[in-house]
Nucleic acid binder design. Structure first.
Lengths: 244, 244
DNA sequence: CGCGTTCTTGACTGCTTTCAAAGATGGTGG
DNA sequence: CCACCATCTTTGAAAGCAGTCAAGAACGCG
């Protein structure tokens, strides 16, 4: 079980320092910023495109989701913002697509302080965010349900690890299966079945908001192999349940 | 039929001026840059992550594709760069995912000139690129084959229109169906069938590298309606808690 | 303890893939 | 000018992965 998380200050410094060398003064600014944080109530959409959302924000606690939806109810979550992530407003001259930003549960944010080295960190964060978008495209375009779920789980582990919000083989996942379905472009029912499969095959378990990997560092590559060996065996009752 | 395209200079100015007001001197810089363009031979991957690729580039002719691929052969094209687009290197500290940049057919590039107003244009271009990534995620995650193809076609029309590389109802599409399949996360066979359907339903035709829309301005919204009226309902979405 | 949300599971449907092969298309050389 | 070849486009039939519909079980909360 997760014993304790880093403090708000520690998360921000930890995460952003991983991107660039932060000057001492900028680290102090981050810690000060964390003091003046504010809470976003559950499921209340943020308007970042308007004049109010012209400033950059930092996530200090909770998860935020960027999503888009049709009027027929279909919804796609583009991605999440987790503690330490930078939310940039964007100039949004011509809305190629409109996205909403909502908090998952309750989230705490703070205005992003300015600074020499922080500017570099924000730029790097934008690059990383783009890379994760690329990966999300690849995931949705060319991976099956099994691979999508596993790949995504490892990705979140990696990201949360940077701000101390995860352990090497486990992390807290504060979303429902419905939401995960909207992230991975699947139906809730099929997400549920896929999770069951991941559990049976011995990849990971997700119970009461807590994800635990059965084995260390397995990238999406393993997912492919698992899948290949499973299907070649025609059907798989696989031993090896996850450890407690 | 396409009578003639704008000159290299015109494309760059046209496209970037649509993002921000360009100063007179910066427009001149763009025109000069277009003079010193170089050609990328067909299907030769560019290495933009290395030290050589530290500079920003502008596309003046042809299409480039950013893609990623598994070792089992599956390939996903993240997106295209078309004339007027800005290719930024990215700091790529930790490769969350590795992507290749290859030219589709033959492409012409030039180094991106620096300038006060150009800097704003590049920033805006980056924002727009991110918006198109969001849209690509939504397309792959929550649209069926029919909608994906139509939505993508309109998107490319819109983008090419900005640099004068398209007409309101037609544009030249220099790719194969195989490549389109890798963009939309489908198989070539199904792309072919979907194109046939789009043709029969009277949405668009694509013959000898030339796309022509049957009707004016139909967004992806129309795709949904078409689909709905034509046969069974589109794949239902996942309603969210507390919907209206 | 009751109720709403979330999680599971089963049975069936269907969109997309797979496998295979025939039909265009375009460029090249005789 | 036409045969020839590689590439690309079309089409059919069958299989599979994911979606749909429905209902029961488990969970959390006041």
């Amino acid at each position: 079980m997760q014993l304790s998380y880093p403090t708000f200050e520690e998360r921000l410094v930890m995460r952003l320092a991983a991107l660039t060398e932060l000057s001492r003064s900028d680290r102090v600014k981050l810690q000060e910023a964390a003091q003046s944080s504010f809470v976003i109530s559950e499921e209340k959409p943020l308007k970042l495109s308007g004049p109010s959302g012209r400033s950059r924000l930092l996530v200090v606690d909770g998860w935020l989701a960027r999503s888009t939806s049709h009027q027929d109810g279909r919804r796609q979550i583009i991605g999440f913002y987790v503690p330490g992530d930078v939310i940039s407003p964007g100039m949004a001259l011509k809305p190629v697509i409109t996205t909403d930003l909502t908090s998952v549960g309750q989230a705490t944010l703070c205005p992003a302080p300015e600074g020499q080295s922080l500017a570099r960190a924000y730029a790097a964060a934008a690059d990383v965010e783009q890379a994760y978008l690329h990966r999300q495209v690849a995931r949705l375009g060319r991976m099956n349900a099994f691979e999508r779920v596993e790949d995504w789980m490892w990705e979140m582990r990696d990201r949360l690890l940077l701000s101390g919000m995860a352990q090497p083989q486990a992390f807290q996942l504060p979303i429902t299966q419905d939401i995960l379905a909207d992230v991975l472009g699947l139906t809730p029912v099929h997400v549920n079945r896929t999770l069951k499969l991941l559990r049976e095959v011995g990849v990971l378990t997700w119970r009461s908001g807590y994800v635990r990997f059965a084995h260390e560092g397995a990238s999406s590559q393993v997912a492919c192999e698992e899948l290949g060996s499973r299907s070649s065996r025609a059907s798989g009752g696989t031993p090896f349940t996850g450890q407690a």
